[in-house]
Design a binder for these strands. Structure first.
Length: 297
DNA sequence: CGCGGTCAAGTGGCT
DNA sequence: AGCCACTTGACCGCG
């Protein structure tokens, strides 16, 4: 089991996701920003190694406007060696890596332009992992997309795009996560049947919408969609409901009792856990300590 | 130099 | 009808 947190480290005084506005785009600005982002990423990874946080999600903002037409610069060549070096570090320390393309990536949109932009974004994020020379256990994590009032048809559209339009390099890394309002675990399992895509399990989203599966059973069902020799073990997002806030909103800090209970409930199941908790590594310390106590690390 | 309006992109739920 | 949230607030113009 590996435990980690997404994108941002709040201890270090740098960001690996510095961007800038479209209006101020220039190649020089791009090079400068990506150089700083990658330097920061290296610092974050070293921090993570030092503290036993062996799972990390790279920010989508590593290369600003990477899938936008304004950016015609060959950043892939320019940063090839830097990315490979980062990849070597990741492999040397056996870190698990994911990326989570944002809400604008909708593969089942009825709008062909949205699908086109979505694919371009997936190609960009996949190419980061490719240039790092990471294997297919490094994943791209997206949601099913919109429901459009007819989920089976919408998922059929997802599958069609998957089979006919996605490059193999993206297909090898693509995963789908159950979301908190449209596509439940069961909906994702249907999509898995159509495509073979592994399902990333999100416990809080599962609490928001489900078909009555108990937590342990749900984890097992998601885990069964992963081919260990290609995909590695199950990745999951762990969070808890922020008290008194909108349903699905992430807590500020990890509720240790709840996380303890979750680990007990899933005893014997292996998985890598991404903590979607607002205070980031502050909660990761606690989660790692709990997992050690229970003999899970 | 600090504040706050605004920022590439989609969707759906809430007010 | 408009706002907010989403994997994450950060950027940058203005006073």
């Amino acid at each position: 089991m590996k435990i980690g947190y997404p994108c941002i480290n709040e201890t270090l005084d740098c960001s690996s996701g510095r961007t800038f506005r479209l209006a101020s785009y220039s190649d020089e600005r791009l090079i400068e920003t990506v150089t700083a982002n990658l330097a920061c990423l290296q610092r974050i990874l070293a921090f993570n190694v030092q503290h036993g946080f062996n799972f990390f999600r790279l920010t989508s903002g590593l290369v600003p406007f990477a899938s936008h037409e304004v950016n015609t610069y060959n950043w892939q060549d320019h940063f090839k060696a830097d990315l490979k070096k980062l990849g070597d570090y990741i492999k040397e320390h056996n870190l698990r890596i994911s990326m989570h393309p944002d809400q604008f990536v909708v593969l089942n949109s009825p709008n062909p332009n949205t699908v086109k932009n979505s694919i371009a974004e997936l190609v960009y994020q996949g190419s980061i992992l490719d240039l790092m020379e990471l294997d297919a256990t490094a994943k791209l994590q997206i949601h099913g997309g919109g429901g459009y009032g007819d989920k089976p048809t919408a998922l059929g559209r997802f599958a069609e795009v998957y089979h006919n339009q996605l490059p193999d390099a993206v297909k090898a890394r693509l995963c789908v996560e159950n979301d908190d309002r449209t596509y439940s675990l069961q909906d994702c399992l249907y999509l898995h049947e159509l495509t073979g895509i592994p399902i990333i399990f999100d416990n809080l989203h599962h609490e928001c919408i489900n078909n009555g599966e108990p937590m342990r059973e749900a984890v097992e069902m998601a885990a069964a969609t992963w081919k260990p020799e290609r995909d590695g073990i199950l990745m999951m997002d762990y969070s808890a409901q922020a008290p008194g806030e909108r349903k699905g909103k992430h807590v500020q800090s990890i509720p240790e009792q709840l996380f303890h209970d979750f680990l007990v409930e899933t005893e014997g199941l292996d998985m890598d856990i991404m903590l979607e908790i607002k205070d980031k590594e502050a909660s990761a310390y606690k989660a790692v300590a709990l997992a050690k106590e229970l003999g899970r690390l």
